[in-house]
Amino acid sequence: MIRAERTALVLLAAGRSRRFGAADKLTIPYLGRPLGLHVVVALEAVPFAARIGVVAETALDLTSCGYEVVVNDDPAAGLGRSLRLGVEAALRCDPDAVVIALADMPRVTATQIYRLLDHAVGPDAIVASSDGEVPRPPALFGRAHLPELLAAQGDMGARELVQRGHHIVVPPAELVDVDTPEDLERLIHG
């Protein structure tokens, strides 16, 4: 088991949201708060060694939530760039592991993160969330994999690493990812 206190959280919030349209989807109200702050609130009690938010152009205020904010000035370079920027910032706290989460996944829970941590053994750990079929974030990467994350390119991010890791099955509702206005409507209206 890797302890939360030795783990850095990297929250990716710099996507271009092309499929959502012109609106900043992370600031759209959902259940009384901006969509992008749901995962922030859900994980606020997890005692991470560091919290890093990678953002582009968003009005989402992660600084007031205790995050070190890193600006991705070239989100068109893909998810890999955001991943690299977040991991570079995380390395400053010399973590045993990094948890990668996405700001557009509003139903992630602290229990889900603790399950990742509980199944992470040693520096070679890769533990991802899954609906039982497809692994996805949130995902944990042990220290040995941080160089691979720093080499991430394009929109593939850490997909290959996640595929070969251990997968923790969680309720599909916790893995909802809001990419389009229709996704948000389904989330709101069930």
Rank of each mutant, 00 (worst) to 15 (best):
L62P: 05
I100F: 04
S64C: 10
D61H: 03
Q112P: 04
L60H: 01
L79I: 15
I113F: 05
A89S: 09
A77V: 00
A59I: 00
N72W: 05
E88A: 14
V70K: 00
C93R: 12
A101W: 00
Y114F: 13
A89Q: 03
Y114K: 12
P75W: 07
N72M: 07
L62H: 02
D61E: 08
L60Y: 02
V99W: 00
S64H: 02
D74G: 10
R107A: 06
V108T: 14
V87P: 02
Y114V: 04
R81C: 06
N72P: 04
V69A: 08
Y114C: 11
E68S: 12
D96E: 15
D73P: 05
D94N: 12
G78Y: 01
P106R: 08
G80F: 07
L79P: 03
V108F: 04
L83T: 15
Y67M: 05
V69E: 09
Q112R: 11
D94K: 07
Y114N: 15
T63H: 14
L60E: 02
L102I: 11
D61M: 03
L91W: 11
V108G: 11
P106T: 03
A77F: 01
A77Y: 00
D74N: 13
T63Y: 09
A97I: 06
T111Q: 12
V87Y: 00
P95S: 05
L79A: 05
L91E: 14
L60S: 05
A90N: 09
A76V: 08
L91I: 11
V108Y: 04
Y114E: 15
I100P: 07
S64K: 02
L79W: 11
T63R: 14
A59C: 06
D96K: 08
A101E: 06
V98N: 04
A76I: 02
A103R: 07
R84H: 11
C93V: 14
A90D: 07
P95K: 12
A76D: 13
